[in-house]
Structures are given as structure tokens and as C-alpha cells.
Design a protein around this nucleic acid. Structure first.
Lengths: 357, 357
DNA sequence: CTGAAAGCGCTTACAG
DNA sequence: CTGAAAGCGCTTACAG
């Protein structure tokens, strides 16, 4: 029942001033080995934990700045990611933390370099970003070594990133395979529409999808795997739509589309316009108003929703906890919790936002 | 860009001391009408919001006490609920909020009356609880009108509860029906094991389950619906196990068990011991280490996991936000987000805790 | 290397 | 009715 020990208790117990306790707490300044030991012992003995509240109150004046960098493209996926950032901002503001946003406009790393420089010039002391495409080492080269950073959505495991928050792509592929198999059953004849095939995640999803079929639905046939060019999101819409239309014409007997990313709804639109609904069902990812409707209509059988807002929120909170020294990472990969969107599960999922409201 | 206004800014703008501002903020003490107006105007003009951080630091001594009342029964469901309460406690403690726990030992309302009285005598100024069985009005009678309260898991919509956090039972029934249909397909021959049939939620789940079958799997046959007595959780384990064993003997051609609650794993155990795995698949609710294993073995096809820890955490945070005057409720029902547990979705779900880690 | 002091934004006695 | 002061537990200059 006695209240938590404070820095004062530690100071008294170890016979030093609270200033010195603070120094050993943060490894800043010099402390004699003797005093350091005494303080460490006292912390241990009292099981002292610094008060986040007091820390936050003080940091009201230092103003921590976390830089955020994500693609600005016209899609609901990134809009939703942004809403996670905004939510984190509102939670962090009272703790004296400022979020600074900069955007990239394509998935390249040159663009990203510019964005990172803008963040740094605005005073960001740490960064959370979606890595662009480029050499594995590009993040380490772009971001100065004293700036801690973390990745979201896409990982660069060989970089010095502090941690990564993102989906488990191989598992997402397996799950998609299972759902497609459950709905399409034995007569499975599918076409894969693969966008962003240069991304490791896309490859892993396809691999997972195929391996589930191989194991649990051996009679399933994959008629074709089509690459969807993705220079921009808008062009990608058209590309996938047209590709889907063509595939439907080419394969009168197909009954499944598997789309490897959030473009799922456009393949569904193609199915609808071709009047093949009821004959062809779409499986893919993410959750928008359109996918919602297509699921109700039965054109989309299921999607797997990776909750980008939640991922961004989690990533920013983790970075904050790290910055205030409250958190270390033994495990550096944090997997997104995904939701299975089928007709009967729609009522359970808050679309477009954070679940912890 | 300029930082948040503080109480000092309000004081300066309205030409009074911060003490006076504080008085109007909390309607305590007497303030001249003139000064009160000035302060109110300044608050409005600056859009001033008191810092929760500073407030928390001051109230290191606990002023707020939230009473919590839940069943203490030997089951992983309630253990998990408790872990949500503990998590909320750890988050709330630094803000000077104390959670007081009292348990009920059966689902009756007389027992609950005692628990509530104990909470009140310990100084609870608000209550969050799982309503016991009894007349719809019993909560309003048990809990004094000046004490705000909220319900979790089970609702009493006609009471004056502030809000309710709980699962959407009809939808959970539909979803279970869909999952069973996807796995069992056309030759569906099922037995329903219904525990706690006196609960409205149980009835709604069964209703949902049946109606999905009627609509999407008309050839499905429900062989029997068995009531499982639930005097205590431990007795219920045995009851459902024995009932399942008997049903397996009676119906050599059955291939589905639908269990209406967290006892799912015991029906699965019966299937396993009868050596009917591969022939009979179980569908039901919640997620424990045992269900996890049974899903891997294919004995359980799917469960729907309502995340009791998350529900409790959400409910307590909502109550806190209400108490500090930060929140009003236009909508009073908050639906639990449920997860579909099938073999391929197991990697996505953190079992037993809070997802926002 | 170390300590004393100021201050983060608020609440709570205490004096007028 | 009102204001000035002390203090919640920290961090950050500033002096030794």
C-alpha cells in the first residue's frame, strides 16, 4: 500500500543528490564509480521506476520531435495509415511530443532521401517511416547514425532500424489460400493478380498462397499469375481492372481471383462488370467501403485486413516509449494483427481507425 | 505550432490568479460571477484543456476509485478478463486512479448485491461490472443513483448504465454458422451444446447460428440441442464432456459440434478421446492454449474469440475518461472486436492479453 | 564529478 | 471571495 519510491528515496538511500541519481539513470555526465554503484544498488533495492507522468510534465518544455515519413498516394490504405498517425499525435501531444510529417510521392529511395532531409531540418530527433525501394543499405545511408529510426509496413531487416511493425506476409498468404479454398472448394481454378511484385512481401504472400493450395487443395489449378505495373496508384487501378477483365475473357472456367494487395476491390469491380458474379469470387487484402460492399454482394469472398492505422499507432507509441527510455527491444519485429473480413465478420471490425477507442 | 495554453495563460487573460481559474474549473469554492465569466471566456477563447499529466502528478494520492465486479470462477475466460483489469490498473495507477475488485461466485444477483456493497464500503465512486442474472431492474436497485456504472460482457439495456461493452451475440451466432458451413459443407449434421441457455446472449447465438444455416446451408441438419447445466464452471466441464461423449455415441453420422461458449475445448476433448477426429469438427468460442492446440490438430475447425481482456480494458478506460469529464456518450453500446481463430489465423492473434502492446 | 535551484502545469492548504 | 506559496517527481541549466 505504501506508495511508489521516488527519485528522492533513491537519492536518500544512496547518500547522493537527486541530480546524481538522474545522471546514472540516463548515463549522462560523469559519476564516480562508487556513487554509481550505490545508486544502482538503491534502485534495485527499492525497485525504483521513474514516473512517466513527471517525466512527461518536464518534457512539455523540451518538446520531443518524432519524424514520420509515408507515401502520399491517392488510396484508402494510406489515408487510413495517416489516421493512425493523427491518433498517435493526439495521444502524444499532452506528453510534449510533436509529430512532424513528410511524404514521399513514389516508392523510390531518392524521393525518400529528400523527405528524410526535410524531417531532419525540421528538428526530428527520431524517425518512423515506410522504406522506399532501393538497396538494402539505403536507410542507413540516408539517416544519420545518431537518429534512431523504425520501419512500418515494409521491413529492411539488415538495416540498423530499432524495430519494425508490419504484417506477417507469408502467414497472410497462407491465410488467403485457406479462405479461397474454403469458399471455392475442389473445383478451384484461380488467377493471381500480383501488384508490386518487386516487394518481398508480395512474393511471400504468393508463396504462402501457393503452398497452402499445394498442401490442402492439391486439385487446385492456378491458371496464370499476372504482374500489375504500379508506377502510381491511379494507373494501377486501371491496370488491374483491365488485366482482370482480360483474364475473365481468357478463362471462361476460372472461379477465383487472388489479389496480393489493396487493389482487391478493382478486380472485384471487373468481375461485377463482366456479370460473372456468383461464378468468380475474389480474395485479397485490406478493407475499404468498396470491399465492404463487394463482400456483401458475394463478389469478394474474403479479404485480410492488416489495419494500417493500428500499425502506425503502435509504431509511434513504441518509438515514444523508447525515446523516454522506458523500453528496450529484445524482439525487434512486431506483427500486425490482421482481421479476416467475410460477410459475417463485417460487423466486428471498425474500419479505417484505431480499435482502442 | 505554439504550445498548448496552460492555466497560467487563462489566468493572465482573465486577470485573476490561477487559484481562481482552478475554482471555476472544478466548481469548488465561491467565485464572483464577474470573474467566473471572465475565466470562462478566456477558456473558450484559448481553447484551454487542463493537462492530464500535471493533474496526475498532483494527485499522486489516489482520489478516484473505480469499483470492479466480476465472477471468480476457474476458467481461462475470466482469468483473461482479469488480466485486462490488471492492465488497465497499471495504466491508470500513475494517474492516481485505484481499481477496487470484488468478486461474485455465481451468476445470481443476490451475490452481486453483496459484492457491490463491499465495493461501496471501500469507497468506490463508480462501478464496472458483469451483471448477474435477475430482474432487469436489479442493478438500478443495488447501485445508488449517484454512482455511475457500466456493464461488460452481458448487457442490461433497460438499466441506467452509462454504457455497455460487450460482444454482438446475434452476429457471433451468424459467424459461427458461416464458419461451420464453410468447413462442413453440404453434408452438415450437427449437434448444439448450449451452456448458460438462460442468458440472452446464448439464445441469440443459437438463433444466429440456426438462421445462417437455414439461409446458406438448407440441407444442414441439427440433430439435437443439448442444455449444459452450469452451476459451476468445474461441473460444467464434466457436463459438457460427458454430454459430448454421449452425443457422439448416439449419432454415428454427426460431423459438427457447435458449442455456444468458452467450453468449446471440452467438446473437442471428447471428440479426441472418441477417436472421431477427422470425422467430427468442433466450432465455438474463445481461445485458450487448449483450443489453440485443437485447432492445430483439426479437431476444432474454428472459434470466435471475443477478447475479454480487451473488453475490460476498454470499459475501464471509458469509465476513467468519463470520470475526469473528458467524455460523453451519445452511443452507449461498444461492441467487442472479435477474432476468427482458424489454423492459418493463429499467428495473427495475441492470446490472453491486450493487443495494444 | 556533484549539489542546489528553477520549473514543467496543476491542486491544495493557508492567509488575507 | 481571492491570491501567493508549497509541492507532486522529474530534468535541465548553473555553480561549485
Amino acid at each position: 500500500m505504501s506508495s511508489q519510491p521516488t527519485i528522492k528515496d533513491v537519492a536518500r538511500m544512496s547518500g547522493v543528490s537527486i541530480g546524481t541519481v538522474d545522471r546514472v539513470l540516463h548515463h549522462r555526465g560523469k559519476v564516480s564509480a562508487q556513487n554509481e554503484q550505490a545508486v544502482l544498488r538503491a534502485i534495485e533495492a527499492l525497485n525504483y521506476r521513474p514516473s512517466q507522468i513527471a517525466r512527461a510534465l518536464v518534457s512539455r518544455k523540451n518538446n520531443l520531435k518524432i519524424g514520420v515519413c509515408l507515401p502520399q498516394v491517392e488510396s484508402e490504405f494510406w489515408t487510413e495509415a495517416l489516421s493512425g498517425v493523427e491518433y498517435a499525435r493526439s495521444k502524444l501531444l499532452p506528453f510534449g511530443v510533436e509529430l512532424i510529417l513528410e511524404y514521399t510521392y513514389n516508392y523510390g529511395y531518392l524521393d525518400q532521401r529528400e523527405a528524410v532531409l526535410r524531417l531532419l531540418s525540421k528538428g526530428a530527433s527520431s524517425i518512423v517511416l515506410v522504406p522506399g525501394q532501393g538497396p538494402q543499405s539505403h536507410l542507413d545511408e540516408i539517416i544519420p547514425p545518431e537518429i534512431p529510426y523504425a520501419t512500418v509496413i515494409e521491413d529492411v531487416p539488415t538495416s540498423r532500424r530499432l524495430f519494425h511493425v508490419g504484417p506477417d506476409d507469408p502467414a497472410m498468404g497462407l491465410l488467403a489460400g485457406r479462405l479461397a479454398t474454403l469458399y471455392a472448394g475442389q473445383g478451384f481454378r484461380g488467377v493471381i493478380l500480383a501488384a508490386n511484385q518487386q516487394f518481398l512481401g508480395t512474393q511471400q504472400r504468393i508463396e504462402g498462397f501457393r503452398s497452402l493450395l499445394a498442401k490442402h487443395n492439391p486439385s487446385a489449378v492456378i491458371l496464370e499469375t499476372c504482374d500489375i505495373p504500379m508506377e502510381s496508384e491511379k494507373i494501377a487501378y486501371q491496370n488491374i481492372y483491365e488485366t482482370a477483365v482480360n483474364q475473365l475473357l481468357r478463362h471462361p472456367d476460372m472461379n477465383v481471383f487472388y489479389v496480393t494487395n489493396g487493389l482487391t476491390q478493382w478486380a472485384a469491380a471487373a468481375v461485377k462488370s463482366s456479370k460473372r458474379q456468383g461464378k468468380v469470387q475474389v480474395f485479397g487484402y485490406e478493407c475499404t467501403e468498396m470491399t465492404h460492399d463487394f463482400i456483401h454482394e458475394g463478389i469478394i469472398g474474403a479479404t485480410i485486413y492488416q489495419r494500417p492505422a493500428q500499425q502506425w499507432y503502435n509504431a509511434l507509441m513504441l518509438m515514444y516509449e523508447y525515446l523516454i527510455g522506458d523500453r528496450t527491444f529484445e524482439e525487434t519485429i512486431f506483427r500486425a494483427e490482421c482481421s479476416i473480413m467475410i460477410e459475417e465478420s463485417l460487423p466486428f471490425v471498425h474500419r479505417g481507425g484505431i480499435s482502442t477507442l
